[in-house]
Simulated scan of single mutants.
Amino acid sequence: MKIGLDMMGGDYAPKATVLGAIAAHKTLAEGQKLVLIGDSQVIRDLLEENNYSADGFEFVHTTEVIGMGEHPTKAVVQKPDSSISVGFQMLKDGKLDAFTSAGNTGAMLVGAMFSVKTIPGVQRPAMTTIVPKLKGGLGILLDVGANADCKPEVLVQFGVLGSLLAQSVYQIDNPRVALMNIGEEEEKGNLLCQATYPLMKESTQFNFVGNVEGRDLFSDMADVYVCDGFTGNVILKMAESFYVITIKKGLKDEFFDRFNYEQYGGSPILGVNAPVVVGHGISSPEAIKNMVLLCRDMVETNLVDQFKKAFQP
């Protein structure tokens, strides 16, 4: 197994990515290799500064970096030797089994769709985030920003993608899939939710349990919460603020500690033909490590193959 890590992506790269790569390398098993993509000399110097051997890694040298504020499509096209572009080319060519970056999110989405492409039958890939539950365990929320506007059929597909992720990577048996709405009744919601509900109810590809409201997100009412990317991103950003607020207020609570993005690493892009994980721009070494480990879990569970099987005509 070879996992590609963009060493130049993120607000604190390459120092944070090097430290994260070291932490991940200590956890990976024999036969699981990290491929470090970026300025090789800078990376080697940082490894040496931290008294860590470069022998356990593979290096792919690149000369360009896609900045966090650059236009995604233009950057991917105009910077073919950027760490993100090279990583996706290697993924497309089968030289990597997975690829992850804390760099430009838009460029990661564009790169995934241009290189490894969407799985046949999947209308739109989705990004996910982890939702901690009050009584322990976790849930999955999708989409959280890849698709601001969605059609009902796309939300149904998100239910399939989220259910398979929950079952395979997080070992949740027969995961319960819910539609995020403004009321529990079947007829509630905007036009999108009203049209989506009967389609999800009729689906035999996942265990649909109906509508849930925002107040139910951290309960045990469901395991997978489906919504459009606009709604999901608003929820995600608000949830991320909970952890920051507790730190600023000097509060210590195990539940709110689980809102720390570092624990989960990044957001997988579900529905493309290879495992791809996008990290937070402010990713710390701990987050980088967990991005790599999520890639490993996606490869080991053959998640992409399960998606392909689910969307066969």
Results as ranks from 00 to 15, higher is better:
Gly10Lys: 04
Tyr12Leu: 12
Val18Arg: 08
Val18Ile: 13
Ala21Phe: 02
Ala23Cys: 00
Ala23His: 00
Leu28Trp: 11
Ala29Pro: 01
Glu30Thr: 15
Gly31Asn: 14
Val35Thr: 10
Val35Gln: 06
Leu36Thr: 07
Gly38Val: 03
Gly38Met: 04
Asp39Leu: 06
Ser40His: 02
Gln41Asn: 07
Gln41Leu: 04
Val42Ile: 14
Glu49Asn: 12
Asn50Pro: 02
Tyr52Lys: 08
Ser53Gly: 09
Asp55Arg: 10
Asp55Gly: 02
Gly56Cys: 04
Phe57Asp: 14
Glu58Thr: 06
Glu58Tyr: 13
Val60Cys: 03
Val60Pro: 04
Thr62Glu: 09
Val65Ser: 11
Val65Asn: 11
Val65Lys: 15
Ile66Glu: 01
Gly67Val: 01
Gly67Ala: 11
Met68Leu: 11
Gly69Trp: 12
Gly69Asn: 15
His71Leu: 13
Pro72Cys: 12
Thr73Cys: 00
Lys74Pro: 05
Lys74Leu: 12
Ala75His: 02
Val76Leu: 13
Val77Thr: 11
Gln78His: 11
Gln78Ser: 12
Lys79Thr: 11
Lys79Phe: 13
Ser82Pro: 06
Ser82Asp: 08
Phe88His: 00
Met90Asn: 06
Leu91Ser: 04
Lys95Cys: 05
Lys95Trp: 05
Leu96Met: 06
Asp97Trp: 10
Asp97Thr: 09
Phe99Ile: 00
Ala102Cys: 07
Gly103Leu: 07
Gly103Asn: 08
Gly103Thr: 09
Asn104Tyr: 07
Asn104Arg: 06
Asn104Glu: 03
Met108Thr: 09
Met108Lys: 09
Met108Arg: 07
Met113His: 03
Met113Ser: 03
Met113Gln: 13
Ser115Ile: 07
Val116Ser: 13
Lys117Pro: 02
Thr118Leu: 10
Gly121Tyr: 04
Gly121Val: 03
Val122Lys: 03
Gln123Cys: 01
Pro125His: 12
Thr129Glu: 05
Ile130Met: 15
Val131Met: 15
Val131Cys: 01
Lys133Asn: 10
Leu134Met: 13
Lys135Ile: 00
Gly136Met: 13
Gly139Trp: 04
Gly139Thr: 03
Ile140Asp: 04
Leu141Gln: 01
Leu142Ala: 12
Gly145Thr: 08
Gly145Tyr: 07
Ala148Ile: 08
Cys150Lys: 00
Cys150Arg: 00
Cys150Ser: 11
Lys151Ser: 02
Glu153Cys: 01
